[in-house]
């Protein structure tokens, strides 16, 4: 039982991080029709910004983390939107999809060539001590990661639902034409979405890298987890991405322990296929649109 609870806590921790990536992915898809196949690489990259800031500039970890978030907002938010998405969305969705795949390759091989092909140890902001909660040993750093991730998600939900800008962003996501007629500055809202996605990716990166180590190829697994989380939860809902992320994290960890470590990655994929077969709109999603 103690082992089970530990696995669930570990699962919720990685799941909360998957949720961060999945939320950004759904927001982008909703607001700007950008299906970002580089989402996993977006989560992989900021850790290397932080590492570079620490090892090259000699900054302390806290400052390096801020530098990583700022650089992510600039590169993965503003530059990605203006240089890649804006010129390509005019050519249609397929060229844009292809370009995000190319961006994924670019970031992956860029990090491999410029920084290192080896997995890099990454500092954790909470010390890795073990505390006992209700008779079950739980890692303090995991609880810290979980708390930060959930706080960021709560802040985002508060922003989207409780502020004028947040509501304008939601309106843009639901129907850009009507939003524009009602006086919403749609272009600015789309830009905000890219900035939020980059911020979420950076936070996810800083949280996951102490667990997985920072490696150029991390994006493959993280991206897949984010896609599965978004689809399983119901991609037209932010809370769907949250539920999907947590679920994928827990299932992933339980499967590794009880099913087979070698096929750990396969279990979320099986979940994806089951959802597509029996509940294509996702667990919390609304039914919409036609198939082809």
């Amino acid at each position: 039982m103690g082992e089970f609870i530990q696995l669930v806590v570990t699962g919720l921790t990685t799941g909360a991080i998957y949720a961060l990536a999945a939320i950004g992915f759904t927001l982008l898809w909703q607001t700007s029709q950008t299906i970002n196949f580089a989402q996993g690489e977006f989560v992989m990259l900021p850790a290397f910004f932080a590492l570079a800031a620490m090892n090259v500039l000699g900054l302390p970890f806290s400052l390096a983390a801020l530098v990583a978030i700022a650089l992510s907002v600039l590169v993965l938010g503003v530059v990605f939107k203006t240089v890649v998405v804006d010129p390509l969305i005019r050519q249609g969705v397929l060229p844009l999809v292809i370009s995000t795949i190319a961006v994924a390759l670019l970031l992956k091989d860029g990090v491999k060539e410029v920084y290192s092909a080896e997995a890099q140890p990454f500092p954790s902001f909470v010390p890795d001590t073990v505390v006992t909660v209700l008779g079950t040993p739980v890692s303090l750093s995991q609880l810290g990661v979980l708390a930060v991730a959930l706080a960021v998600i709560a802040a985002l939900q508060g922003f989207l639902g409780g502020t004028r800008t947040g509501r304008q962003m939601q309106a843009t996501a639901q129907n850009p034409t009507v939003a524009r007629i009602l006086g919403v500055p749609v272009e600015r809202m789309v830009m905000y979405t890219f900035v939020i996605n980059a911020t979420l990716a950076a936070v996810a990166s800083l949280l996951i890298s102490p667990i997985y180590l920072a490696k150029f190829s991390n994006g493959e697994h993280l991206g897949l987890a984010a896609f599965v989380a978004a689809i399983v939860g119901g991609f037209n809902q932010v809370r769907g991405a949250i539920a999907g992320g947590l679920l994928v994290g827990v299932v992933d960890n339980l499967a590794a322990a009880y099913v087979s470590a070698a096929y750990r990655q396969a279990v979320p994929l099986a979940l994806l296929v089951l959802i597509i077969l029996f509940r294509p709109q996702g667990l919390l999603g609304r039914r919409e649109e036609r198939a082809v």
């Binding site: 299906i35 969705v93 897949l224 599965v228 689809i231 994929l269 994806l272 597509i276 294509p280 198939a291």
Partner: peptide, 12 residues
């Protein structure tokens, strides 16, 4: 389901 789902399923 809908457009782009084939991309995710083939990815998986």
């Amino acid at each position: 389901v809908r457009k782009h789902y084939l991309a995710f399923v083939t990815l998986a």
